[in-house]
């Protein structure tokens, strides 16, 4: 089986699985499906920026948090669809605003800068809420979990489609080139600064909407939780374990970690973080191309 046919089968099976889950599964399984869809949406979006350009963002929680905030603040006044689109638009606008200065620094500086930026926004929102006399906001009349699940699956599909699309477009080839060498890429005609900014904005939209949907799931908003840095860390963990070469990577990383987490929480909650830490080390050292890279090698060897 060639790799295109394999991909088609993989994505179809996944879609069928996501569609069948709420019909045949109970609330517990739908909850796991929701988590998987959420992480898939976040990690695929992140990979459009970080896997393709090499600019590793440790601050994607900022988009998640902003999206949550937008939905919570507009909840009583605006229809759900508008609120969610607003969450995506706000994230994109924020990325556009900070993108140019932020994307000027590379490597560890970019990592730290994105992390710091997310913290800055978190404490700014906290201060703003305190100024307005709000300590946490409740969200009444949130939709049923199955509706939330459906929305999240749609976002996961959108983020995956985005990654696949970028991969085949010249835009994606340009991003990969600038990851290797920005000066050389610029010299052969790649508009490096604009492409980096565009990738940053693209990678922000879906996470903003994911944050909005998750605000409806938790039915309350509290900045410390909505801008939780572990969200950013988890995204990177999944992307590293899955691999960054194609849209398969985030998928494999997310499925592997979501299933493993459920199993570990049930069997060995004390060892949970230890095992995740060890896994990350093993993958970084031994399988830098992740599960997807390993799968690609295996497919090549069988042909």
């Amino acid at each position: 089986m060639n790799s295109t046919a394999f991909d088609a089968l993989l994505w179809t099976a996944l879609l069928v699985g996501f569609a069948a889950l709420p019909i045949f599964g109970g609330d517990y399984l739908v909850g796991i499906g929701l988590a998987a869809a959420m992480w898939l949406a976040l990690t695929q979006s992140w990979s459009v920026l970080s896997s393709l350009t090499g600019y590793v963002s440790l601050g994607h929680t900022v988009f998640y948090g902003l999206g949550s905030y937008v939905v919570v603040v507009t909840w009583q006044q605006t229809p759900l669809a508008i609120a969610l689109l607003g969450a995506g638009a706000a994230s994109a606008a924020f990325a556009l605003l900070v993108g140019l200065p932020v994307m000027r620094v590379r490597g560890p500086y970019f990592v730290i800068l994105t992390f710091g930026l997310a913290e800055l926004v978190k404490y700014s929102v906290l201060a703003l809420e305190a100024e307005m006399g709000v300590s946490s906001r409740l969200l009444f009349g949130a939709p049923d979990i199955r509706v939330i699940y459906g929305l999240m699956v749609a976002l996961a599909v959108a983020a995956t489609a985005l990654r696949i699309l970028v991969d085949v477009l010249p835009f994606g080839h340009g991003l990969r080139s600038l990851r290797e060498n920005e000066e050389a890429a610029e010299t052969v005609g790649v508009p490096v600064a604009r492409y980096k900014l565009f990738a940053f904005v693209l990678s922000a939209i879906v996470p903003g909407m994911v944050g909005g949907v998750m605000a409806m799931r938790s039915t309350f908003f509290e900045p410390i939780q909505a801008f939780d840095p572990t969200i950013s860390v988890n995204i990177i963990l999944m992307a590293v374990i899955g691999g960054g070469e194609s849209a398969r990577g985030p998928l494999l990383g997310v499925l592997f970690l979501v299933i493993l987490s459920e199993w570990l929480w049930a069997k060995a909650p004390q060892a949970y973080m230890i095992i995740l830490g060890l896994l990350l080390i093993v993958f970084v050292l031994k399988f830098p191309r992740g599960l997807a890279g390993w799968l690609a090698d295996w497919q090549r060897a069988r042909r």
């Binding site: 010249p170 080839h173 340009g174 990969r176 080139s177 052969v188 005609g189 790649v190 508009p191």
Partner: peptide, 11 residues
């Protein structure tokens, strides 16, 4: 792939 970048983005 090195050359493809040039062919797609150059003149």
């Amino acid at each position: 792939e090195n050359l493809l970048t040039a062919a797609m983005f150059g003149p």
